[in-house]
Design a protein around this nucleic acid. Sequence first.
DNA 1: CGGCCGTTTGAGTCACCTCAACCACGGTGG
DNA 2: CCACCGTGGTTGAGGTGACTCAAACGGCCG
Lengths: 240, 240
Amino acid sequence: MAPRPRACSACAVRETALCGVLNTQQLARLNRRSYRRLYPAGQLIAGVAASEDWCATVLSGVIKLSKTLSDGRQQIVALLFPGDFLGRPYRAEFPYTAETATEVQLCCYGRTYFEGFMQERSDLKQIFLERTLDSVDAARDWMLLLGRKTAQEKVAALLLTILQRTSRPCPDCEQGPCRQLIMPLTRTEMADYLGLRLETVSRQLKQLEAIGTIKRLDPRRISVRDVDALAKAASSDSTP
Amino acid sequence: MAPRPRACSACAVRETALCGVLNTQQLARLNRRSYRRLYPAGQLIAGVAASEDWCATVLSGVIKLSKTLSDGRQQIVALLFPGDFLGRPYRAEFPYTAETATEVQLCCYGRTYFEGFMQERSDLKQIFLERTLDSVDAARDWMLLLGRKTAQEKVAALLLTILQRTSRPCPDCEQGPCRQLIMPLTRTEMADYLGLRLETVSRQLKQLEAIGTIKRLDPRRISVRDVDALAKAASSDSTP
DNA sequence: CGGCCGTTTGAGTCACCTCAACCACGGTGG
DNA sequence: CCACCGTGGTTGAGGTGACTCAAACGGCCG
């Protein structure tokens, strides 16, 4: 459940994670206070009730952050991919529910220790700040989607996001406009992220397939025949 | 258009703004490099095309940040009230459209100067970071509203937000459960913030009045008869 | 084989949108 | 002083995109 830390130099997210700015010596210090955790898919990581005194870097897998209304209505407010940061520094309570969408591996640190480390290493804090600013932008982009886009555009936009965050070449047709993606979310989760019902998501996927933009290989695997058409279907905002 | 700076000690947002953490000496230094701007209501402050090299603290009034799709669909992604920060440090492009909802007074600084000042005064940067983290939370709260709440709940939630951010005692009935608010937004703007149409906003306001939760004094002035009922109508999230 | 889970598909409904008329208010100019 | 607009808000009638309910499908596992 908590394997011993391994060398940061061999870390899968060495360049993309926050700690990418640290030199080897600083990295070694942080490493000594870090520990790994492995969660199966569909597991609660951090709730709201429990005050969370730790934070982490995602090494592998996908985490969903969600908020729930008292009557059960749920909204996924963010997805965390490898290299992303999980936690809420400077605050004991974590204001979301964090659950694994797939199997997830984390590199964890104590929250206050990490805060102290940021205080010392101002460049780390700087990167953290810039990432937080990016999170604001991402959340606001998604607000535009939730408030103003049609079901069709929402589903297309989600496919695009997944494609960008987990780019992998399509085994059939190397490079070119065709790409394959593996959806880390169930239909219900996709709906909870898009502010839709699962049936609507399913129907929109069918329609995107009907117009030739994508092809469903199986419920989880989707081949994007035409990335440009998908981007057009998503009305990727330009904010001119 | 750009009155000379005045003493920070007499500033209306002295305690609530970012610069509240600075001591008088540091404040004086920042003050020397700041200048004020006054905008009438309904004015474009900062666009997307123009690279913005300045940022500011809101002294008075309300600013809306919005994003627009190429076909004109618009979503307001945030409202800025007195004491709030406007701008995007560490980036030349400002990713939103900023417009005044009411008359607005700003205290402006050069963007790179402000960045340098944050670098020196790490406690300023700290506060800025914590505010940015709060912005993420606020945006995600609104995502829940946009994705999962009904028109009725959305309108109620907006009234609550305005009430909280611009609390003023009701002239008729001092304290008690009754409060009055002055809506800084038009119906169209309310709709753009809530992901609705203006007609729907108008109808929901009527219905909230019909059930006795609010009373419309005139289009801009609303008396909240029962704040608890309004909070209930808004399904204020608990995330249990 | 049988049950379960996630997904798909269909039919009917409804909350919100669209279109359109009307109203109240404030400014302008004859 | 009043006729004339223009703007923002309200109200009504009708339409529709997404939801609701329900059934059937397919893969997986015991």
